[in-house]
Simulated scan of single mutants.
Amino acid sequence: MYLKTLHLRQFRNYEEQKVEFTAAKTILVGNNAQGKSNLLEAVELLATLRSHRMARDRDLVKEGEAIAQIHATLERQTGISDLTLTLRRNGRRSVALNGESLRRQMDFLGVLNAVQFSSLDLELVRGGPENRRNWLDTLLIQLEPVYAHILQQYNHVLRQRNAFLKKHQDSVGAQGFAPLHQELAVWDAQLATTGTRVIRRRDRAIQRLAPIAAAWHANISGSTEVLQIKYAPNVPLEQNQPEEVQQAFLTKIQQRAVAESYRGTTLVGPHRDEVELAINQTPARQYGSQGQQRTLVLALKLAELQLIEEVVKEPPLLLLDDVLAELDPYRQNQLLDTIQDRFQTLITTTHLSSFDSQWLNSSQILFVKAGEISTK
C-alpha cells in the first residue's frame, strides 16, 4: 500500500497543510515541537482510530478551532481510496470513505495499515501492563478490525459494572452481600461474554506474533538471546473454547465477589491482563541494558510489520518517530536494511547525519517548522 497524499486542516499545530509523497521513504527533518510527530500521529489515527499518545479528540484540534480534519489518498492493490477523519472539540468524530460517511467506524478500519515505532515504545518493556495491553489491542485492530467493536463493547460493560459497584460500595455492610450479588449477575454475564471475545483474540494474536518476534530477536542479537512472549490473561485460559473461558471467567468473578464489593471496582477481566516479555527466561524489565530492551522493542515492531503483511497481503506503512537516535549504529542498520523499499516509511529526525548517502539519495526530504512543511 502507498500513501499518496495527506491533507491536514486545523490538526494539532497545522493550519492547512497538504503533503504529496513522492518516494518510498520520506524523512521529516526539524527541531523538536515543530509538528513532525503530529504528522505521523495523523497517519496512525487513519490506520487505527487511536493515538499512541492517548490524546482526547479535543487535544487534537488546533487551539481556537472547533473542527480538525485529516484526509488521505491511499493506493492499494485493490485501487485508490480516499479517507477522511473529522475530529471535533465538542462532539463525536466522524469518518468517510471515498466521500461517503460511514455509520460504523469499524468499517473505516483496515483500509490503511501502519506500524508506529517511537521512543515511547520503550515503555512496552519498562512500563506497566496497560502499555502492553494498548500495544496488543492496537495491533489486533489492524489484524481484525471487528476487534475494535468487541473491545468497545467490553469497555462499555466494564464501565457500567464499575459504576454499579461504586454506587453500592458503602451499602454492602448494611444490607449484606446477597441482594447486591443478584443484581450484579446481569453484569457478570455480559462481562464474561464480551471479555471472553477479547481474551480469545488476544491469545490468538500473541500465539501468531511470538515466534515471528523471537526469530527477529535472534537475528538482531546474533542468536545470543532468546525472546519469549507469553500472554498471561487475568482469567485462567486452559482451553480456548468460548464456553470454557466464559465459565472460568464467571467462576473467578464469584471468587472475587466480596473483594470487588468492598473495593467498588471490577477485579476480574482482560482489563487486568499482562503480556509477559522475557529474555533468556528473565523478565525483560529486570534484564540487562537499555540496548537489550531496545533490541526487544525493535524485534516486536519488525514482527508487527511482518504479521500485518501476512494477514492483509500487503506491506503496511512504517512510521518511525525520532527512533533512530535511540538505536546504536548496528540496530539502525538492522532496521534500515529490513525496510529497504519494501515498506513505505515516514521517518522523523532532528538532523540528517543518522542516514548514509544512499538513503538520503533515495528518500524524499521534507523540512518541518512551526506546523509548515517545505522541501527546503
Results as ranks from 00 to 15, higher is better:
F108T: 07
N113F: 04
K25D: 03
N32Y: 05
V125E: 05
V29D: 04
A259L: 11
A174V: 05
E244D: 10
L250P: 05
D341I: 04
V186K: 01
E326Y: 08
A214W: 02
D321G: 05
K376N: 14
E183H: 13
Q175E: 08
V235C: 00
Q340I: 05
R272E: 02
Q153K: 00
S223I: 00
L28F: 15
E44D: 13
L8M: 03
Q77R: 11
R58I: 15
S353P: 12
G35R: 00
Q292A: 08
L277S: 06
K62A: 12
K167N: 04
P283H: 04
D356M: 07
A47S: 14
Q306L: 11
E15I: 14
Y287Q: 13
L191H: 01
R93C: 13
L40A: 04
I373R: 09
G264H: 03
K230D: 12
I347F: 04
L112Y: 01
P129D: 03
K166S: 09
L112A: 02
S363Y: 12
E243M: 05
D328N: 03
G291S: 08
S118L: 08
V323A: 03
L102N: 11
Q182M: 01
N134G: 10
D321C: 07
L120N: 15
Q290H: 12
Y2K: 09
R159E: 07
Q241G: 11
S354T: 13
S261L: 15
A96C: 02
Y330E: 12
H168Q: 04
I80S: 10
Q293K: 10
D203M: 06
L296I: 13
E183P: 09
D107S: 14
Q160E: 02
L366A: 02
L267K: 00
T5Q: 12
Q228K: 13
